[in-house]
């Protein structure tokens, strides 16, 4: 059964960029398998033209299901129904958070194999093999599936959104039953923006701060350095410090934040967790200051400084100012 069912996350009338990437990737793989990529969207009144627009990324058909948005378990029910109706050999998810939850729930429901954080998928002998980096990206494991359906959860930005030029997808309503447990979680508020609405996506220079700043006031050091660079520079943050309320959510880089690729990304007190790395690894130049010589960020920085940011940042700010004035 060579068809691939791709989850398309949407919010506020737009489809998530990582889901567009997953649909493109699904279309590419389905073609290799001799099947079709279909997408599935769930929500309260999903607009038909929004669903049909996935045709541009290669989806032949889009299943639209009516149900509560933003929670995983209703999608497990809907996708299990679609897969039960037949034709699908794989379910594919882009990076993010919901895809992990839905993919895992679906694996449990179907007794299916699941690979997460997948960065590459290839077809071999009519089957798909998923490549997943493990152990802090120090090795890549290859996963095949023994189950009739295989579940592939991509890493953020692993699959590029490509408009293949095809027309609209055929839109079909999917009716399904919510399982009892899926009715026991209710969204109260969704997508709350905590903190100021700052813009980091357009910046050429980003000074990013993490937990190593020690306290919310630590961000002053980053702000002063960003100011010294002047021009188009801004301050960014990790989830650890955003969750802690030290810095606005809008400044967060990573899996559940922004994806950026500035000319210069300077990290201070950031360990370099995978979920952070996926949002900034395409920066042109990466400089990291961390007091721990074994911090993962040094694995992917162009210039690493092992030292105390409290000593280095103020002096660096002065030196950058002096350089600019000279």
């Amino acid at each position: 059964m060579p068809n691939i069912l791709v989850y398309a996350l949407h919010y506020d009338g737009a489809i998530n960029k990582n889901s567009l990437g997953a649909v493109s990737e699904g279309a590419r793989l389905a073609e290799e398998l001799g099947g079709e990529a279909h997408a599935i969207m769930l929500g309260e009144g999903v607009a038909e033209d929004l669903a049909a627009s996935l045709g541009r990324y290669g989806a032949k058909k889009v299943l639209v299901a009516e149900g509560p948005e933003g929670l995983a378990q209703p999608l497990v029910d809907a996708m299990a129904k679609a897969i039960g109706d037949g034709g699908y050999g794989y379910a594919l998810f882009g990076g993010g958070l919901l895809g992990f939850e839905i993919g895992a729930g679906l694996a449990a429901r179907l007794g299916a194999g699941v690979a997460m954080e997948v960065t590459n998928v290839r077809a071999e002998g009519g089957k798909l093999i998923a490549e997943r980096p493990i152990l802090g990206d120090s090795a890549i494991s290859e996963i095949a599936y023994r189950s009739p359906v295989g579940i592939i959860i991509g890493r953020l930005n692993a699959f590029e959104a490509r408009e293949s030029g095809a027309g609209s997808a055929q839109v079909e309503q999917l009716s399904f039953e919510l399982s009892e447990h899926a009715t026991r979680a209710t969204m109260i508020t969704r997508g709350e923006q905590r903190g100021a609405d700052v813009d980091i996506e357009g910046a050429d220079v980003l000074v990013a701060g993490g937990r190593g700043l020690g306290k919310p006031e630590g961000f002053k050091l980053c702000e002063e350095l960003a100011q010294a660079f002047g021009g188009n520079s801004a301050v960014a943050a990790t989830r650890a410090v955003v969750d802690a309320g030290w810095y606005p959510y809008a400044a967060q880089i990573g899996q559940t934040g922004k994806t950026v690729s500035p000319k210069l990304y300077l990290a201070a007190g950031i360990s370099g967790a995978i979920q952070h790395k996926v949002g900034m690894q395409s920066s042109e130049n990466i400089v990291a200051i961390n007091k721990d010589a074994n911090a993962p960020i040094f694995e992917f920085s162009d210039l690493g400084i092992v030292g105390d940011l409290n000593k280095i940042l103020p002096k660096l700010t002065e030196a950058v100012k002096a350089k600019k004035a000279s």
Partner: peptide
């Protein structure tokens, strides 16, 4: 919890 679009508040009935 923080999901793709910001912070979500969700009510979950026990057991969970």
């Amino acid at each position: 919890r923080q999901a793709e679009y910001g912070y979500d508040t969700v009510e979950v009935k026990l057991p969970a």
